[in-house]
Design a protein around this nucleic acid. Structure first.
Lengths: 154, 154
DNA sequence: ATACGTGCAAAGTATTTGCAAACGG
DNA sequence: CCGTTTGCAAATACTTTGCACGTAT
């Protein structure tokens, strides 16, 4: 596989930011909340609730999947994670960064792989379009469907 | 509300195109297939399977929801309709036009309304990005989340 | 007439909710 | 200590599948 993946994990700055937000809102950050945030902070790309659940369990943590969903939902409402809908009836989630470092996804309809990418000019157009609609755009979710670089060669 | 909505229904050219495709593939276009295509052809924006089902029933047609899903799935695979994932675990569908007239969606997280829009420059950027990924992009699905023009005024 | 297509009902997934026990502050 | 948070299990919502009947060709 090709790819100069995203250099690093999502960065621990995000984790700090989330914990601070929790503290600020008076939420406790014990068990499930903490481990979900920790796991998300280590990811380079989006995960489904089930994947998060499985990894936490594999790591020996005794979380319930309901808690995973609850935490993700809460984080999404606080705009600390971005819901990514790649289709197939499954929601995926990833850390939402305050400033930039925003990325989108290409879903290979052939092999199912999800590839992340970012593009500054595209971002600029998205901003412009949002404004021109007179709406207050809080987030955008772009998914390209098709055959990924590998599959389209075959 | 602002907006120079889409001028007209989706255009009957699409319906013809679909029926021709069916004929070409040797598919029969009797009952459910025909009415789902007919309904989709009249729409300006995406509908969920349930909405399609309800409208057909309201119109006196005795279709089953399973057939609606089957037809939509088939049309999607033939690239005659575009699946639109606006989140909330529900898939929506709309006629996919061969050449242009492509649009995207803004979902108001406040009132739930879905607003369609199109933008040529954005389209151009999307094309460029798709190519730069080396992938064969068959479709793209862009959803802006936020407060629509109406809701953001309140 | 004969497959293909359809409606119904039952099954399958993803996600949400109710509740008693556990735990952080 | 007390109220939030959690894990479990049951419930819900959307979508898919199995099967016998209807229908276009």
């Amino acid at each position: 596989m090709a790819a100069h993946a995203h250099t690093h994990a999502t960065g621990s700055g995000w984790k700090q930011h989330v914990l601070a937000s929790f503290a600020h809102e008076g939420f406790r950050a014990g068990g499930a909340r903490a481990v979900v945030v920790e796991l998300l902070a280590e990811q380079d790309c989006c995960l489904s609730a089930q994947e998060i659940f499985d990894r936490l369990r594999a790591g020996g943590r005794k979380v319930g999947i309901a808690s995973v969903y609850r935490v993700l939902d809460q984080l999404a409402q606080m705009q600390l994670v971005q819901r990514v809908d790649v289709g197939g009836g499954v929601s995926r989630f990833e850390a939402a960064h305050p400033g930039g470092d925003h990325h989108h996804h290409l879903v290979c309809d052939d092999c199912g792989r999800v590839v992340a990418f970012e593009d500054e000019r595209l971002e600029a157009e998205l901003d412009r379009v949002g404004k021109s609609l007179g709406a207050r755009v809080a987030a955008h979710d772009l998914v390209l469907h098709g055959a990924c670089a590998d599959c389209s060669q075959k």
